[in-house]
Computed example of a mutant assay.
Amino acid sequence: YIYEGFMESLTGEKVPSAEKVISQADVTEIAHQENYHNVSHSIATEDIEFGYCTEIMVKLGEGETVTDTFDYDTFRNHLNEIGDSLLVVADDEIVKVHVHTEYPGEVMNYGQKFGSLMKIKVDNMRMQHDAVLEKADAPAKKLEKIPYGVIAVAAGEGVHALFKSMGVSTIINGGQTMNPSTEDILKAIESTNAEKTIILPNNKNIFMAADQAAEVSDADVVVVASKTISQGLAAMLAFNESVDLETNKANMTAELENVVSGQITNAVRDTVIDGLAITKDDFMGIVDGKILTADKDRKAATIETLKKMITDDSEIVTIIFGEDSDEKESKEIAAVIEAEYDFLEVEVQEGNQPVYSYLLSVE
């Protein structure tokens, strides 16, 4: 196809090409071939003539061992005599070499005649070949399905760790501005390899992809419609491996109503929303999808947002700080809330999440 493209560009005329029609059976056979197995067995390890894949990079004219002036053809012809699969790329300052040889030391010593060695890499291809053969001959292991799998969409290493600690099997890295596709979710369902699977989207923008994945998957899958990370974490409190899928979905969905979710993030432009004047780069407090506060000071915006989330029935406040905030400020915020609301238990967690300086929840 590449050469046909060259020819069409040069002549301006379309080049006729032969077409091969293959059946679905052909496609299936090709898809199930273990090609690496077939290729690896076509040669015995002892038949490999040059056993070391050797790469060097030489800084020309540098070093105490320089004795010769570099000439590309002379250099290449010499290496060609002690190996094969030779590739030599050079400019006025550097020469890069890739060669299969039985004597990697000779390649290095020869390179040092023209300059200093900047990089050296040697791989034993006989050992690599044996390893491939061993893998190819090993019987395929069929992984047993786990009884239950929970998939959560989340961003930030700390948030991932929180979900894992609560029993989530698989994390899809994503969320606001990084919405996974239906295909991404299907791959997660497959890799989870569970008899029953629950998906926590943790963002309403992911609902459609999650629902489509659950619908087309061959596995037994349900979606618990969590809109935020806080809701997803709350839902995991109701997860119970001993009950059936529909019961888990009902119990976890009911738990979503027991948490108020908040986020702190930056405004990207000046605007007015519901009478609230917001200036670009202000820190906005968002509660259950609605912007309620805005302040140039992040700490002040977070405290004010939490106050709007807390009621007399509240019991637990969780503050998850992101990649652009820190534990010190988080604990200062927690101290203010604890001093004003002595009936609350306040927890601070590291989330490392992007976009949101703080993820807040009140239960």
Rank of each mutant, 00 (worst) to 15 (best):
M127Q: 13
M236L: 14
E62I: 06
N202M: 12
E134H: 10
S40V: 13
M178K: 08
E246Q: 15
Q212D: 14
G175Y: 04
I303C: 05
R76M: 08
K296A: 15
H78R: 14
N202F: 07
A235L: 05
E81D: 11
T228N: 01
I120L: 12
K164G: 00
A335E: 15
F239R: 04
V150F: 02
D218L: 11
N179F: 07
V216F: 09
A225R: 10
G167V: 05
G158N: 09
Y358S: 00
T11R: 09
I264L: 10
G262D: 06
A18W: 04
A44W: 00
D313A: 11
I316A: 00
F70Y: 14
F207N: 11
V39E: 12
Q112W: 06
L276I: 07
I185R: 07
I264Y: 00
E81G: 03
A339V: 00
D137R: 11
H160K: 15
D92Q: 13
Y341L: 02
K290D: 14
L276F: 01
G285P: 05
K142N: 11
S116I: 01
L237Q: 12
I319M: 07
P354Y: 04
S165H: 06
S181W: 05
V216D: 08
I198N: 01
T265Y: 07
V243I: 14
Y52M: 08
